[in-house]
């Protein structure tokens, strides 16, 4: 397994946000974490990126225990995240935001910038604009593009569909698939379960800090209890 989250528990003060979550991501996969608000999806991703400390359990990347590696050092090891709410630097230009993605890298990154621009042509048009002036969809593209600039082994995406119009969501998900087909492993957190399950090879269902189901995306998509809980009952697919 490329990324292993092994039975981790995370606390906010005395309140347990994660109570022994185990998730594994294999190389080349798209894995989705779905669940309701407060289930612990974002906390899981923040813990993987080292923004939250672990009370119990371990995080391993390519077999190496990184549980106690500080967050900023995990980028060089191959983890980069497009966080919830996008986390764009509002006062930096689009290009400067992208260069923040390659902050830890040495040498010329212009080929990577071009690659991001070819995935998201809109960003190229707006490269000199301040990040804060972009629309929500453009900011999400920038957040994903910026994370790609780090050349991650595992790309972590936290709610890329949040607050976006259905058409833009469709576009973003197609690009995630394209990125994956180019060889980037993706761990995706989504409330938009239908889209996420259709895209993901495998998925985990989180409820109040625990994994309650895990199966292939297709299996969960057709599971009556999952449909009832996360897909708004009977929707046709």
């Amino acid at each position: 397994m490329l990324l292993e989250i092994d039975d981790i528990s995370v606390y906010y003060g005395k309140i347990a946000a994660l109570k022994g979550v185990t998730v594994a991501v294999d190389e080349g996969e798209i894995v989705a974490l779905i669940g309701a608000n407060g289930a612990g999806k974002t906390t899981t991703l923040k813990t993987i990126s080292g923004l939250r400390s672990v009370a119990k359990g371990a995080v391993r990347l390519a077999g190496r225990d990184i549980t106690n590696v500080p967050g900023h050092e995990r980028v060089a090891l191959g983890l980069c995240q497009a966080p919830e709410g996008r986390g764009i630097f509002p006062g930096l230009t689009v290009l400067e935001n992208l260069h923040m993605g390659s902050y830890i890298r040495k040498g010329d990154v212009s080929a990577d910038v071009e690659r991001v621009f070819s995935l998201f042509p809109r960003l190229k048009e707006r490269q000199k604009q301040a990040g804060g002036t972009l629309s929500g969809g453009e900011q999400q593209m920038l957040a994903i593009g910026r994370a790609l600039m780090a050349q991650p082994k595992v790309l972590l995406l936290d709610e890329p569909s949040m607050g976006l119009a259905p058409k833009i969501i469709q576009q973003i998900f197609e690009i995630i698939q394209e990125i994956n087909e180019q060889g980037v492993t993706v761990l995706l957190v989504e409330q938009n379960a239908a889209q996420a399950l259709a895209l993901a090879h495998r998925a985990y269902v989180l409820e109040t800090g625990r994994v309650v189901r895990s199966a292939t995306g297709r299996e969960l998509l057709n599971d009556p209890s999952v449909r009832a809980a996360y897909l708004g009952g009977d929707i046709s697919h």
């Binding site: 900023h72 980028v75 995240q81 986390g87 764009i88 630097f89 930096l92 923040m100 994370a147």
Partner: peptide
Amino acid sequence: RGIRATAQDSESAVLMGV
């Protein structure tokens, strides 16, 4: 750029390896 990024969003800056 690292200083400005940290000033604007320190958590995002950490995610970028700052």
